[in-house]
Amino acid sequence: MHDDDYILKVEGISKSYGQIKVLDSVSFNVRKGETKVFIGPSGTGKSTLLRCINQLTEPEEGRVWLNGEEVTHSGSRINAFRQKMGMVFQNFYLFDHLTAVRNVEIALIKVRGMNPKAAREKALAELRQVGMEDWANHYPAELSGGQAQRVSIARALAMDPDVMLFDEPTSALDPELTREVLEVIKKLARDGMTMLVVTHEMGFATSVANEILFMEGGRIAEQGSPEELLNDPRFSRTKQFIGQFREYDRGA
């Protein structure tokens, strides 16, 4: 019953906090190598949606499948699924007491049971991918925000995920640092990584996305390719939303 084309299937996810329905039956499917970008006003459940996918937040309703296996209601196997769904957070959440390379290798050693030498090699290779190998022995507090975020991307990539979840990866960064992080994410997209990205970077969204999903009020209000959303008059709400950013950009 599940199309094998889809690496990730999300079906009818709902989540409420008290009276407020943050997610209202959200469904979508993701093909291997595809990049889906979620945009929309603050508080429309975009970040909650990502957390419901890897069950960091438990949805009240709805199901998620990764590679045809159900992630929801998977009990203790959730830890295996989470390894396969790398997550990058707005505030990096690097482990404060560990150097960059230790941040990347610790889950390889403790979760995957890799031997420390092989884990170190792999961690350094991942850091190289994001241009951070020269900073391997620095602690998070010694890194700029952009550098920290690139390390956190390397940390997620080290687990060889099937899909990457980016939760506003540049929202805590100034424009210059934003660029260095977006470059890394764009490169991942080119290399064929499957990605879900929540962002407010409209230029980035339109350049990297195979599909943009515009969320409002806990629902996917509109979705389509960047060209469709920008040119097709049906997608008025999205265009209006993106337009606000354009105006703001011009003004700045």
Binding site: N54, L56, S76, N79, A80, F81, R82, Q83, M85, G86, M87, F89, Y93, L94, F95, A107, K110, V111, S152, R155, A156, M159
Partner: peptide
């Protein structure tokens, strides 16, 4: 959160 996201119990 970050530790659990990496698959740690």
């Amino acid at each position: 959160i970050a530790a659990q996201a990496l698959g740690m119990t």
